Simulated assay, not measured.
Amino acid sequence: METAKSIAESLGVGKTQIQSIILDKEKIIEIWKQGVCCSDKKYIRTRNCAFKDVNELVLEWFTIAKSKNIPITSKMIQEKALMFSEERNEDGFNASN
């Protein structure tokens, strides 16, 4: 059995990507069995998050900004996330990289 590291090296991708695919194997197989093509439906990995509302607001802001061709930096995303968390009075929020 090949390791995630050896698979990643052979494909020229990161080991973390391979590990994520292995962890999501059952979901990926189920989507494939349903006959959903990548162009028909985007496969999105869902993650559990304590601040789901803040993440959704940041994603909405990000999508709008990108549609307007506004250049976005990681610092801008962090600042926007902090702003949304303050508006929602989210205690313990930390804007990660």
Rank of each mutant, 00 (worst) to 15 (best):
T73N: 14
N69P: 02
E87K: 04
N89K: 06
I28Q: 06
N89E: 10
K80T: 12
W61H: 08
E60K: 15
V36I: 13
D91A: 13
P71G: 08
D91C: 07
S85V: 00
K66T: 10
N55D: 09
S96R: 15
S10K: 14
N48G: 05
K42R: 13
F62V: 01
G35P: 13
D91F: 01
M83Y: 14
R45I: 02
K5C: 06
N48K: 15
E90D: 07
C49Y: 04
I28H: 04
E60F: 01
L57T: 04
K66I: 12
K5P: 09
I21D: 03
K5S: 15
I72Q: 12
I18P: 00
P71T: 15
I44T: 15
V13G: 03
M76D: 10
E87L: 13
D53M: 05
K52F: 06
F51D: 10
Q19C: 13
E30V: 11
L11H: 00
K41R: 14
V36Q: 10
W32V: 05
S85E: 00
K27E: 07
P71A: 05
F51M: 07
L11E: 01
R45E: 05
S6K: 03
N89R: 07
S39A: 08
N55C: 06
K15T: 14
I44H: 06
T3Y: 01
K75A: 06
E56Q: 11
E9W: 00
D53V: 12
R47T: 09
S85F: 01
Q34F: 08
F84W: 05
S85P: 06
E86W: 05
E30K: 10
I44R: 15
L59I: 08
Q34L: 04
K25C: 14
E60P: 04
N89Q: 07
Q34H: 11
I22N: 11
N69V: 13
S39R: 11
W61L: 01
V58R: 12
G14P: 01
N97M: 09
F84N: 02
N55K: 15
M1Y: 06
I21M: 08
C49D: 07
I44A: 03
F84H: 12
V36P: 01
E86G: 05
I18M: 02
D40M: 10
L57P: 07
K15V: 09
A65E: 15
E30D: 06
Y43D: 00
A81H: 12
V58A: 14
A95Y: 08
M76R: 01
L57D: 09
I21V: 14
E60Q: 09
T16Y: 03
T63C: 07
I64R: 12
I28R: 12
L82E: 14
G14Y: 11
S67R: 07
